[in-house]
Amino acid sequence: MHTLREGRLKTDMTTSVHRTQSSRQTPAPVLLAFALMIIWLVLPLVPIVVWSFAKRWFFPDLVPGEWSLQAWQYLFSPVSGLGKAISASLAIAIPVTLLSCCIGIPAGRALACYNFRGKRAVQLLVLAPVLVPGIAVITGLHGIMLNLELNNQLAGVIVAHLIPALPYMILVMASTFARFDTEFEAQARTLGANTFQVFTRVTLPAILPGIVIGALFTFLVSWSQYILTLIVGGGRVVTLPLLLFNFVSAGRNDVAGALGVIFILPGLIILIAVARFISGRSGIAELPSRL
């Protein structure tokens, strides 16, 4: 328990530092920068939402010439294939996330809790798919998958998505386990807990925030994947990004806007649902600086 307490202590210190700072007034330039930053982050989302309800919105009109539900009506009609695309996206992203959890949790533990020869090489191997773009790997992999008859179907796309998704899970779990003290497990074992109990009662609760964050990342990597799905799915696996790309390149701003809104929603919902895991010091993002 001492590590946890230490953690809390640290947080207390940090807040006290804040408190001394906050006794002063925030300077105007900082406030201005704050406002600009908020605007910059939100601004591109505004026209997407507006376009989804717009019709005849031409230069130089600041508001649409007409408000219309035609984009939404089209998308929610059976013709659009939206339902199919969403189910395809989920049927890929969910298995990718689950597989990544099963594979990534032990791997993360290995990288964080053990010292072994070749560890540095394994770390780099795990990190490499994050840095080497998908298109570089998939053009070579395509021929292999063709021969394994994995192309043009969900299974192949799931396998392909694992390449960029799995490393995120491993990295998140490595950073989670790095903060986890395996002594707890040993203590629980000496107190008579069996392996299963140790895992469900001690390990799992401690690493759950990490799993949630890792799963969120993995899901989003798969959810937004375009080029891997296009090449491996060969047009037969139509996910939401493919549908969106179709309408963006066809210049249908209204339909593209509505699809954009739908595209953002799961991430937003998950983010709000898991906000408590992400907020505070447990960092999604501290990982890269860990390895």
Binding site: G81, H142, L146, N147, N151, N152, G234, G235, R236, V238, L243, F245, N246, S249
Partner: peptide, 28 residues
């Protein structure tokens, strides 16, 4: 089953890839 694509060449390529791989009767 209408499959929407960006460019017809995508479909041509798909068939081409299948032909390369020796798929003569179960194309997509």
């Amino acid at each position: 089953n209408r499959v929407g694509i960006n460019d017809t060449v995508e479909a041509v390529n798909l068939v081409l890839g299948e032909k390369e791989a020796g798929n003569t009767d179960s194309g997509s």
